[in-house]
Computed example of a mutant assay.
Amino acid sequence: MDDDSGQVILMMAIIIVIGMVVLLVYLNQSLLAGRSSSMSIMNFPKNDIRELKEETIAEAYTLGRMVNDNLSYNVYSVDERGIKREQDYNENFNRYSDSISRLYAEKGSLIKLTSTPRVENGNIVNATVTISYKNGETTYFENTTIQVLN
């Protein structure tokens, strides 16, 4: 009579080891999937975008109010006053845009800011601001209209 009990024990041990290896591989994959999804959330530049949007809107509003409150334009006719205020607004906003673009370029992001003021009766009444943000992983684009005069 042959004694096969040693072979059965060895075969069961091999099956259990293979099962444990498969379970460990699945566990490892689930840990990596969780880590990669959390890393993508952490890499999303929401604070950069939020800060850029808030500062740009504040700057556009402040520039519009500043240009409208400048009394030196009152020597011009209403049409000329509107043209001068629009030119002054655009010049100052372009300076702001250039400074912010250089600042974010140092962080590895490409920023494009534009603003188009709307003039009525010689005053800037609102401005449409376009914000474009790219950092290699994330692309963000938004148009916002800011009321300057009530």
Rank of each mutant, 00 (worst) to 15 (best):
L27M: 12
L27S: 15
L27R: 08
L27H: 11
L27I: 08
L27A: 13
N28W: 03
N28R: 05
N28K: 05
N28M: 04
Q29W: 05
L32T: 08
L32A: 09
A33H: 01
A33I: 09
A33Y: 03
A33G: 03
G34H: 03
G34N: 10
G34A: 10
G34W: 03
G34P: 02
R35I: 15
R35T: 15
R35H: 13
R35E: 14
S36W: 04
S36K: 06
S36H: 05
S37G: 05
S37T: 15
S38L: 14
S38C: 11
S38D: 14
S38P: 06
M39W: 03
M39Q: 10
M39I: 12
M39S: 09
M39H: 06
S40L: 09
S40T: 10
S40A: 12
S40D: 08
S40K: 15
I41R: 13
I41S: 09
M42R: 14
M42V: 11
M42S: 10
M42Q: 12
N43R: 15
N43V: 13
N43G: 14
N43K: 15
F44A: 06
F44S: 05
F44P: 00
F44T: 11
P45T: 13
P45F: 12
P45Q: 13
P45R: 08
K46T: 15
K46D: 10
K46P: 01
K46S: 15
K46V: 15
K46W: 09
N47R: 00
D48T: 00
D48Y: 00
D48M: 01
D48L: 01
I49M: 08
I49Y: 05
I49L: 08
I49N: 03
I49F: 05
R50W: 02
R50L: 09
E51A: 03
E51C: 01
E51S: 05
E51Y: 01
L52I: 07
L52E: 00
L52F: 02
L52R: 00
L52K: 00
L52W: 00
L52P: 00
K53G: 01
K53P: 00
K53D: 04
E54S: 14
E54F: 12
E54P: 01
E54W: 06
E54C: 09
E54L: 14
E55T: 11
E55H: 07
E55Y: 05
T56Q: 05
T56G: 03
T56P: 02
T56Y: 03
T56D: 03
T56N: 05
I57W: 15
I57E: 15
I57A: 15
A58N: 12
A58E: 06
A58F: 08
A58G: 11
A58S: 13
E59R: 04
E59Y: 02
A60K: 03
A60L: 06
A60G: 07
A60F: 04
Y61P: 02
Y61F: 14
Y61N: 10
Y61H: 13
T62C: 07
T62E: 09
T62Q: 12
T62D: 10
T62A: 14
L63N: 00
L63M: 04
G64S: 07
G64V: 04
G64N: 02
G64R: 01
R65Y: 07
R65Q: 11
R65N: 09
R65C: 10
